[in-house]
Design a protein around this nucleic acid. Sequence first.
DNA 1: CCACAAACAAGTGTCGACACAAACCCGTAT
DNA 2: ATACGGGTTTGTGTCGACACTTGTTTGTGG
Lengths: 264, 264
Amino acid sequence: MTGSTITLDEKPMSSHAILARVLNRSHQHDSLVGTIAEQVGRDIIAGRLAPGADLNSVELSHQFDTSRTPVREALMLLEKEGLVEIPPRRRPRVARLSIGEVREIYQVRAHLYGLVAELIVANASDEAINSLRPHLQAMQTAARAGDLDAYFWPNVAFQDTETAICGNAVVRRILDSLMLRMLQLRHLSLSQPGRLQESLVDHERLLRAYYERDVALAIALKRGIVLRGLAAIERSGWTGATPRSESGSQDDPATAEWPGDEGT
Amino acid sequence: MTGSTITLDEKPMSSHAILARVLNRSHQHDSLVGTIAEQVGRDIIAGRLAPGADLNSVELSHQFDTSRTPVREALMLLEKEGLVEIPPRRRPRVARLSIGEVREIYQVRAHLYGLVAELIVANASDEAINSLRPHLQAMQTAARAGDLDAYFWPNVAFQDTETAICGNAVVRRILDSLMLRMLQLRHLSLSQPGRLQESLVDHERLLRAYYERDVALAIALKRGIVLRGLAAIERSGWTGATPRSESGSQDDPATAEWPGDEGT
DNA sequence: CCACAAACAAGTGTCGACACAAACCCGTAT
DNA sequence: ATACGGGTTTGTGTCGACACTTGTTTGTGG
């Protein structure tokens, strides 16, 4: 197995909506390029396209029955979100994450979520904070059942709602983009033993801190949530390298696409 | 007077290099799209293209003697950097900043520069910190002469070097992008009375804090530098609206390009 | 004289084609 | 058998063309 495969198509209501929002920020939803970007982006995030997999525009244009122009645009859009690498004059590839880059991203996420928490405490109305509760409740029931997949998306939605109600669109945009690249990792992170329960109690405490307008506590909790996520990833031994083929150097093209490995 | 026009072409050594680096992150430098993006981006930042000005691809393709394809790519690149707005099926326009968005950006910048300061204190070698000194010295001489334009670019270079030596490429990327959109505003900010001297002493203290590895002080100073920049902008009365033509609604197309108003 | 509608002009999104670069394949020489 | 070099194939970057949409001007009626 490839570590952890996100079940994207099983729960389309929340996941699809979130991904579409993040990806289709600039282009209209029904646009051709938007459709392509969404589909390919989903395939990347769900792990159906392995890091390093070739994404040449002619094959994709055949696949989507269009010309190469919208495909190229879609790939550029995904590159901007960090999901795709487009070296000049070379075939686009699914972006590959290194453990170092993951640490950097989590560092930034920790700080920016601190800002989000601060803003929520300072500006968000009680009703806005209330909109976090349903997600937390879904997380609670899922955690009690020990169901990782049922926990994952409410958790994502919780954080998405936080960035929404903090009132700062710029930080939301940045965190959205970083979220996209970290989705698989966060799934892996939550799959670590004990992680689910830990995450839950953190979020419960966090919501209380929001209600009680406790700035310092909210910031500390929020940062802690992010950093404990990173710690879980480190604990998991994830490195970003392709499992097999540890043939010395790191820039080997890797196996183009996962062989098989569907389902849960 | 359009407020403050940045003299971009006067000091090409540093400014061009920085802008090229930020804009040409993904594409090779000599590429057609890179050239176009760089040129148009410079025109926007320098204020030669007013916010709201039309950027239709056919005119630009004539201007650069190419087809529309690379022009469109360049505009998408600039849109990703926040300098251009491309509404679907509508002409691309130079992005217009609202005071609210500026506040949001400065909030994010303040927090992320706090992270940068923290990382510099924690990780940067003394030699790396030394590389900040020449820029500070240029700022000192410029401040003594009261020369805003001579102060501006070393100041930008100082902050650019900070993000470079902090060791976190992700935060650097984000701050680069935000810097691009704020360049004109920072120029305006520094043009406020007393601002230049204030900024200088802050940076002098900051560099000492870096050397002495004083985390808390460095973070506080760095944040303060950013936030005082915002305060100066607010003090200047800048709103983002086009000076004349306050004809009720805010989404009027505005005068396409500045009439005249060249030079200092 | 102004409001409204129909023709017109201008611009975007998409397409297929082509030149050149990169990846791949295969034969050759060591 | 393996490493190198030329030829072939695949794919990118760019181009001009075309349909459809948007914005503008003109013509008509109130």
